[in-house]
């Protein structure tokens, strides 16, 4: 099991390194990730949302639905913990 998982891990790492060879240079300001969508947020954040912290404005407004989902994840986790460890729980085994 140990050897198998080491092999799997190394294979995964090799695949990831292979994939990263064609990426834009690290920190390149002209990479697609920093030129396609994100400049819009930086340029229009104040105009649209009057919020200087772009991360907040993207988090809660442009991608607010993501954050709703994220809050739902947190809520699910809380309910799951209550569900699993809640008071008065009796095991019903065989």
């Amino acid at each position: 099991m140990k050897i198998l998982s080491i092999i799997a891990g190394v294979l995964m790492g090799a695949a990831l390194v292979y994939g990263s060879l064609d990426m834009p240079k690290w920190g390149d300001p002209h990479s697609p990730a920093s030129t396609h969508v994100s400049p819009y947020y930086l340029q229009h954040s104040i105009e649209h949302t009057a919020t200087p912290n772009v991360v907040t404005s993207v988090l809660a407004d442009y991608r607010g639905y993501d954050t709703l989902g994220e809050t739902t994840v947190v809520f699910t986790a809380g309910m799951a913990c209550l569900f699993l460890l809640g008071k008065g729980r009796k095991r019903q085994g065989k």
Partner: peptide, 22 residues
């Protein structure tokens, strides 16, 4: 810096801790 990955990762961190709790 590009804000979009930051936003995505805020979500991912919270997902991480939720998974941890469960």
């Amino acid at each position: 810096a590009n804000p979009l990955p930051h936003v995505l990762m805020l979500t991912a961190i919270v997902v991480m801790v939720a998974t941890l709790g469960v």
